[in-house]
Design a protein around this nucleic acid. Structure first.
Length: 590
RNA sequence: GGAGGCGUGGUGUAGCGGCCUAACAUGCAGCCCUGUCAAGGCUGAGAUCGCGGGUUCGAAUCCCGUCGCUUCCGCCA
């Protein structure tokens, strides 16, 4: 019997309830106690004339005391039902009550949805998690993960646990290191993902693998990034990217259904190539809930007399625009706000043109010919009342700036319906990007990704334009996960590593096991890794994934409850053959 | 590594050079109250305004530093 289960049909039953005191209302004679557990709230009434002993105990009870109450279920008197409560038609008349434990007054409200300083919440996480909002996040997460397991199990997938103590490969994010006492001076690393292991499981013939995998990355935190996080990791043999995408798409439709409360904008999920996404939205994870698409006005400005644009175009840069619908009346102050966002994203400036019924209002109007003004307004769909935002710079900056402005306008204009999920797939990412610092090619996603067969010749002539068999799932501007069809022949994999600057011995040292395995009948395979924390945060509208992780770290990676990381005993260090170079005051937290 | 925001009774906020002997709500404590459900009424306790330094006749308020939380950039194969 729980505090959420009793209904009118249970009237007359004798029941025992255990839970926490959500609220106590002492009317002098009658005392009402709202007893709360994970399942709900039930009103318990103590009548001094019926059971004086129980009433006496109830008068001393306080918030968050743990009680065991025995009593009789009965319908509430006419007119006193509470429609806000699932159990609001009934109450339990207590015949006996035991205080299983007392409770100090909590440091913050558990029975009210009030914003509390996050440091305090993290310090008393067990109380924070007692709050209904946090509980529903944890419970939803459980249901979603169970659904993932059921879905994949039903399709022949095998859940395999891969180790958390693995070899450090100093690629990508910084590794968390774990010293070995058996081999002083050497270290394990915690996995950034089970990538190589899952590929080896394909070589093993497991065929369809998945894991709810914990991943570790020693990098700066964000609202959507924790040092440890959870992925739904999976890999399949004998598949192409459409197979993986179709599998995931059907799963995510189910997961959204499991949550309820949100509608998917478009099924099947629209697909965009990376090039398309960058051209139209300036981002490889566009929020498709609204338009405000980026438009290229460079061609129409060929030979323009406006120096700021002409210089950029001559240097091979771009001039692009978005039409901010209905923002033509933006004040100087509001436009300054947009300029500030543009500059923070790397722009040197932001040009604006307000379209009015009898012309335009713009600081740059006097530099533009009549025909150019038209190209920058009506030709790109701007009507009176709209504001055109123009950015001129090299392509990457233009994309970044206009994407930031588009996101800002989407928020400011309320264009993103929070009850809608606009999923999309982004495909054909560049396989490699030039790393200026290292003077070498680097994998944009992961070095094991395959590429479009027709782009193979470009590996020799123009590696930067080779398109990967890589796909990301995006929703409402958030990257939910990504995967690829992998290279499964040693020579192909080595060719990529070579472009990345590895010689044979470096390859053998870092990826020897995988490379060897590719020579023993590795099947074609591909897979994907989906962020579990981000999915739950998206579905619950949580502002941070900390709200969907039971015991998260603070932004500086601190566990506020256990005060980790912390300094360790000298003897522990000695066993590991380690000495610490920083002063101990820097390695403990005050 | 860098930039911004926040830090005031237990909690959430107000106050932003002198009206501050720091306000409001809630929580907490006591008393009253037999149909409440954010119960109600009355009374009361509770804050050296994150910490350190400075400017000033005077600092919660301005300046500098520092600590903590947080957002973003860099970083995140």
């Amino acid at each position: 019997m729980t505090c959420g289960s009793l209904r009118v049909d249970d009237a007359g039953r004798s029941v025992t309830l255990r839970g926490w005191v959500n609220r106590r209302r002492d009317l002098g004679g009658l005392i009402f106690v709202d007893l709360r557990d994970r399942y709900g709230i039930t009103q318990v009434v103590f009548n001094p004339q019926v059971v004086p002993a129980a009433h006496e105990v109830a008068s001393r009870v306080r918030g968050e005391f743990v009680l065991e109450i025995t009593g009789t279920v009965r319908p509430r008197p006419e007119g006193t039902a509470n429609p806000n409560l699932a159990t609001g038609e009934i109450e339990v008349e207590a015949s006996a009550v035991a205080v299983l434990n007392e409770a100090k007054t909590p440091p913050f409200y558990i029975n009210e949805e009030v914003e509390v300083d996050e440091a305090l919440r993290l310090q008393y996480r067990y109380l924070d998690l007692r709050r209904p909002g946090m509980q529903s996040n944890v419970l939803l997460r459980h249901r979603l993960v169970k659904r993932m397991r059921d879905y994949l199990d039903a399709r022949g997938f095998c859940e395999v646990e891969t180790p958390c103590l693995i070899k450090s490969t100093p690629e990508g994010a910084r590794d968390f290191l774990v010293p070995s006492s058996a081999h002083p001076g050497t270290f394990y690393a915690l996995p950034q993902s089970p990538q190589q292991m899952k590929q080896l499981l394909m070589v093993a013939g497991l065929d369809r693998y998945f894991q709810i995998a914990r991943c570790f990355r020693d990098e700066a935190q964000r609202a959507d990034r924790q040092p440890e996080f959870t992925q739904l990791d999976l890999e399949m043999s004998f598949v192409g990217q459409d197979d993986v995408m179709a599998l995931m798409e059907a799963l995510y439709v189910e997961l959204v259904k499991e949550h309820g409360g949100k509608r998917i904008q478009e099924v099947p999920f629209p697909r965009l190539t990376y090039a398309d996404a960058m051209a139209r939205f300036g981002s490889d994870r566009p929020d498709l809930r609204f338009g405000l698409e980026i438009q290229d006005v460079g061609p129409a400005l060929a030979g323009t007399g406006f120096k700021a644009f002409a210089t950029v175009l001559e240097a091979g840069g771009q001039v692009k625009a978005i039409v901010a619908t209905g923002c033509g009346s933006y004040s100087r102050r509001e436009i300054d706000g947009l300029t500030e966002i543009a500059k923070r994203a790397g722009a040197k400036g932001l040009a604006t043109i307000a379209v009015e019924s009898n012309g335009v209002r713009s600081p740059i109007a006097k530099f533009l010919r009549e025909q150019e003004q038209q190209a920058l307004t009506s030709d790109i769909g701007a009507s009176p009342g709209d504001l055109v935002l123009l950015v001129a710079d090299e392509a990457a900056t233009v994309a970044k700036v206009l994407s930031a402005l588009r996101t800002e306008l989407g928020t400011a204009l309320g264009l993103g319906d929070p009850s809608v999920l606009a999923f999309c797939w982004v495909t054909e990412f560049p396989l490699l990007e030039w790393d200026e610092d290292g003077s070498r090619w680097d994998a944009t996603h992961n070095p094991f990704s395959g590429y479009l067969p027709e782009d193979e010749p470009l590996l020799d002539t123009d590696p930067g334009s080779v398109r990967a068999l890589q796909y990301d799932l995006v929703a409402n501007g958030a990257e939910l996960g990504g995967g690829s069809v992998r290279l499964h022949r040693r020579a192909e994999q080595e060719r990529i590593f070579a472009l990345m600057g590895y010689d044979r011995s470096a390859m053998a040292d870092r990826f020897g096991a995988l490379l060897d395995a590719l020579e023993y009948g590795a099947p074609p395979h591909g897979g994907i890794a989906m962020g579990v924390d981000r999915l739950v945060a998206l579905l619950t509208d949580a502002p941070s994934i900390r709200d969907v992780i039971a015991f998260p770290k603070s932004q500086r990676g601190i566990d506020m409850m256990f005060d980790a990381p912390s300094a360790v005993d000298q003897t522990q260090l000695e066993e590991l053959g380690l000495s610490v170079a920083v002063p101990s005051s820097n390695s403990t937290n005050p």
